[in-house]
Computed example of a mutant assay.
Amino acid sequence: MIILENFKMPNVDLDAVMQHLKDTGKRTHQLWLDDETLAFVARGREYRSEFHINPSYEIQYSLKGFQDLMYRTPEGEVKVAHVPEGSVLYQPPFVPHSPRFAPDAFQFIIERVRKPGEIDKFHWFCPQCDHLLHEETFFVDDYRKDPVSRAYDNFFNSLEFRTCKKCGTVAPGRDGS
């Protein structure tokens, strides 16, 4: 028999978490983080335009509404995995993906905690010619630090990052212009 000190079993009221995110306007709420697992609820990803490359698997459950998970094949082709409410999707590590769902939709996500030296990447592509515009990298150790928003701030705040070096197209800014 194994005896665990300070043993906790998180029992989370997901309806209350979704209401908290609505009330506060926040986009994510971390549920737990231990040596092996990171779990959080995310609200609305309608603004996403980048492809996230995560060294961990992701398990994504559609709590409310649906998600269209855009992803890139090894050949660079963009495809869509539709995840209806009540469905769960397993995403293997290193798949470039871009979760898209409405502001009133919610996802429950479980990931493996990053190992030392593992880095998450965020890639933006030219909307005209699909050339890689910019890459942001982060060590994702805690979703309360909101690495996605930090990556977006860096991208949107730089005209240089949003300008295609191949065709000269400027990707839209935060406000769509």
Rank of each mutant, 00 (worst) to 15 (best):
F122E: 01
D130A: 07
L69F: 08
D35N: 13
D175V: 02
D142A: 04
N54L: 06
P99F: 05
V95I: 09
V78W: 02
E136S: 13
V113E: 05
V12D: 09
P116T: 00
E160D: 13
D120Y: 07
F156D: 05
F108A: 06
E46H: 14
P147S: 00
R112F: 09
M18H: 14
V88P: 00
Y152S: 13
L31P: 05
F161E: 01
Y57F: 14
E36K: 12
F108P: 06
R100K: 13
D153P: 01
A39L: 08
R27W: 10
P92A: 14
H52T: 03
T24Q: 06
F101W: 08
V95A: 01
K165L: 07
G173T: 00
H131C: 07
R27N: 13
Q107E: 04
R112M: 09
A151Y: 03
K121T: 04
P93G: 04
S158G: 11
K121A: 08
V80A: 05
R150E: 15
Q128D: 07
R162V: 05
T28S: 10
F161C: 02
E75A: 14
E118G: 01
K79C: 11
H20R: 08
G168W: 04
G168H: 02
F156Q: 03
K115E: 11
F125W: 00
I3M: 13
L133N: 03
P55F: 08
E136H: 07
D34S: 09
F139K: 11
T24H: 11
E111W: 01
H97E: 00
E111Q: 12
Q60H: 09
L89A: 11
Y57L: 04
L4P: 01
K166R: 13
H134T: 00
I119A: 01
V80K: 11
Q67T: 12
P147F: 07
R100H: 06
T169A: 14
R174S: 09
F106Q: 04
E135R: 04
F138R: 14
A81H: 08
V113M: 14
E50Q: 13
G168E: 06
K165V: 07
K145M: 08
L21P: 10
K8Q: 14
K64V: 09
Q60K: 12
S56P: 00
C126M: 03
D15G: 13
M9F: 14
F122W: 06
L133C: 12
F106R: 03
S149Q: 12
I2F: 09
L69C: 05
Y143N: 10
